[in-house]
Design a protein around this nucleic acid. Structure first.
Lengths: 332, 332
DNA sequence: TCCGCCTGTCGAAGCGCTTCGATAACCGAT
DNA sequence: ATCGGTTATCGAAGCGCTTCGACAGGCGGA
C-alpha cells in the first residue's frame, strides 16, 4: 500500500544503465542507441515509472505547467468560459503541459506568487477587460503570458480574441443583404458597458459603423420582463424595424419569447441574428442564424501562442479570429 | 530583467541566520525567537522572496496542489460546473493550496499520471456518474480524493452532493401543500438518464416516491420545439395537471415559453417549481420558485473534506447537502 | 557547584531530477 | 599504426528546499 514512488535511479538500476542515460532517453536531448533506449523504455513500463514533477521542475527550471486565470467578475458568460477552459486544458496537454486554475480574486498578487515560485512557466488570462488591473503587472513579469480579450492599451502584450467588431458588422451585412432597412442591436446589460468590457463595446461599434443611420443599439437586461419591455418599446419607436441582432446569451430566449408575445413572427416579420454559442442558437425556436463565439479556437490559439513564446519563437501581438455566420431559420 | 529568483539562502544571508532557520520561520515547525522571526520576515519582505514550489515539493513530499477533474461529457450544466470550479479554487487557496485543472478525457491515466508524479496531493472529481470509469482507479490510489456526485457503489470513497432525492421530494411537498393534486416532473434529456447520471435519476426517484399516484415523470429535451410539444402532450393527457417541476436548466425558459403559448397562466392555472441556479430562476417571468443547486457549498465542502483527509483526520463517507426551497412568484 | 532540561539555532544530508564535462569505443582517413 | 571526429554512455555537481540530529547557552533544582 505505502510503496514509495518509483525513482529514476530504480529504473536505471533495473535497465543496467546510468541515471543520466534514463534522463536522456526521456528527454531526447542526447543521442541514445536504439537498443539502450528500448531497454530503458521497457524498464520504465515494467516499473510504472513517472518522473517526479517537483524534482524535474527544480532541476530543469521548467514546471511544464501554465496558469489559466479566470476573470474577476464571475457570473457572466459562464458556459463560454467553461469552453475556453476545457480547450485550454486539452491543448496544453497536447503540448505536454498541465494547467493551474486561478481565479482573479487573488488579484495581481496571485499572479506574482505563482510566477515567483516557479509554479508555472507562463499564463493565459481569460476575459480581459479594457481596464484590467492584472495587465500592468504582466508587462513587468518574467513569465510570458497571453490574454484572451483586449485591454485598452495592448502594447507589449499578446492578445487573442474573436473580432467582435467584424461580428457586429457581419450581422448587419447579412440583414441588409436580405433587404432589411432598419436594424437594432440588443447588447449586453448596461452595467457591462459601463464596466468597460471590450467585446461588448467592440461589437456595438462594429454594428453602429456598419448600420449607420439604419441602426439603433441598446443595452439589454437579462430578466424576461425587462427584455419584453425593451422589445416592445423598440417596435413602438421604430415601427419599420425588421432586423434584430442579439448579443446576449442569457437573453436570446427571452427576446424570442417577447416577440412571440407581441405576435411578431420570426422570420416572416422580423429577422433575428444572435451572437452566441451554437447550442443556444440551435435550441431556440426557430433555430437562430448566429455568429458563434469560437471559444475552442480561441483557447487553442491562446495556448499555441504561449507555447511559442515559451520556446522563444516570435508571435504576433494581436490575433483576431474571423467570425463565421451560421445561417439558420431566423432570418429571411 | 533576467534577475534569477530570490532563494532561501539569500534571505538567510540577508538576515544573518541559517537557511534552516528561515525555513522554520516559514513553516512554524520549530520554535523561533520573536526577534529572529521578525528579522527574517523583514528580509523576506525586502527581498521579495517566494519559496520555489518545486524545491519545496521535492523536499517535503507535498506539492500543496490539488487536482480538480472535470467530467467526461462536457456540454452539460456548464454554468454550474463553473461555479463548482471557482468555489473549489477559492477554498483551496484558503487552505494554502493551488488547483490543477484536468479534463476527464485524459481518462484514468491522467489521474494516475498526476498522482504518480507527485504533482498533486489529492483530487476532487466533479460530476461523477453512476458508472464512472475513473472511480475504480481511485480506490487503489495512494492520494486521497473526494467525489462530487455519487457513483453506483460509493464504498470506500468520500462523496458530496446535494441531496437530489430530497430536492425532488421537496418540490412535491411544496406543491401538494398548496393543494395541487396532479404533478409532473420534466427532467433531464433522456440521454442523460441512459448515461446513468446519478443526480437526474435520484431527483426523479425522490419525485416519484413523494408524488406517488399523483405524479408523472418525463424526460425533457432541450430545444424549444421539443419542449413545447412535450408540454402540450402532457396537458392533453393529464387535463387535471396543475403542478410542474422542471429539473433542466437549459429548458426552464422553454417550458415557460410553451405555457405562455398554450395560454396556461403561471401561477394562476399552473404552478412551476424549478431545480436550477438562482440567477436562472430570477430572470424568468414570473420569477420561479426554485430549489437551487448550492454549487458553492458543494465545492467548499469537497475541499474541506479533502483537506481533512490530507491531514489524516477522519471524514464521513457520504455528505448530502440539504436542499433549500426559495419561494418566488411561480407557485400558488 | 553540578546536572539535566528546555529553547533557539545551526550544519549537513538528502529529496529526484537535469545537465555538463569526461571518457570509452569505434569510425574512416591518413 | 595513428589521428581527429563521432557516437553512446557515465559520473557528479547542482537545483532550492525540508528536516534531522547536534549543540550552545540559560534555566531551576538538588
Amino acid at each position: 500500500m505505502t510503496n514509495r514512488a518509483v525513482t529514476i535511479a530504480e529504473v536505471a538500476r533495473h535497465a543496467g544503465v546510468a541515471v543520466s542515460t534514463v534522463s536522456y532517453v526521456l528527454s531526447g536531448k542526447r543521442a541514445i542507441s536504439e537498443t539502450t533506449r528500448a531497454r530503458v523504455l521497457r524498464s520504465i513500463g515494467e516499473l510504472g515509472y513517472h518522473p517526479n514533477a517537483g524534482a524535474r521542475a527544480l532541476a530543469s527550471r521548467r514546471s511544464n505547467v501554465i496558469a489559466l486565470v479566470l476573470p474577476l467578475r464571475a457570473g457572466m458568460h459562464l458556459p463560454v468560459l467553461m469552453q475556453f477552459a476545457s480547450s485550454v486544458v486539452a491543448m496544453a496537454r497536447r503540448h505536454d503541459h498541465d494547467v493551474l486554475l486561478m481565479t482573479a480574486d487573488e488579484g495581481p498578487d496571485g499572479l506574482r506568487r505563482v510566477a515567483a515560485s516557479s509554479m508555472v512557466d507562463g499564463m493565459v488570462l481569460m476575459d480581459v477587460e479594457l481596464d484590467d488591473p492584472r495587465v500592468p503587472l504582466l508587462r513587468g513579469l518574467e513569465e510570458p503570458s497571453v490574454l484572451i480579450g483586449f485591454p485598452a492599451d495592448p502594447s507589449g502584450l499578446t492578445c487573442v480574441d474573436l473580432d467582435f467588431a467584424r461580428a457586429g458588422a457581419l450581422c448587419v451585412e447579412h440583414l441588409t443583404s436580405l433587404g432589411h432597412r432598419r436594424l437594432a442591436l440588443l447588447g449586453a446589460p448596461s452595467v457591462v458597458y459601463e464596466r468597460g468590457t471590450g467585446y461588448a463595446r467592440r461589437t456595438r461599434e462594429g454594428f453602429v459603423e456598419a448600420a449607420g443611420e439604419a441602426g439603433v443599439a441598446l443595452p439589454c437586461e437579462e430578466t424576461f420582463d425587462e427584455v419584453a419591455a425593451t422589445v416592445k418599446d423598440l417596435f413602438a419607436q421604430h415601427p419599420d424595424l425588421t432586423g434584430l441582432v442579439v448579443h446576449n446569451e442569457a437573453s436570446v430566449g427571452h427576446v424570442l419569447g417577447a416577440l412571440r408575445l407581441l405576435g411578431r413572427r420570426v422570420p416572416d416579420e422580423v429577422s433575428v441574428v444572435a451572437i452566441c454559442p451554437d447550442d443556444v442558437a440551435e435550441r431556440a425556436s426557430p433555430p437562430l442564424t448566429s455568429v458563434l463565439i469560437p471559444a475552442e479556437d480561441v483557447g487553442n490559439r491562446a495556448v499555441e501562442l504561449l507555447m511559442a513564446k515559451l520556446e522563444g519563437r516570435p508571435v504576433p501581438d494581436a490575433t483576431l479570429l474571423e467570425p463565421r455566420l451560421a445561417i439558420r431559420a431566423s432570418t429571411r
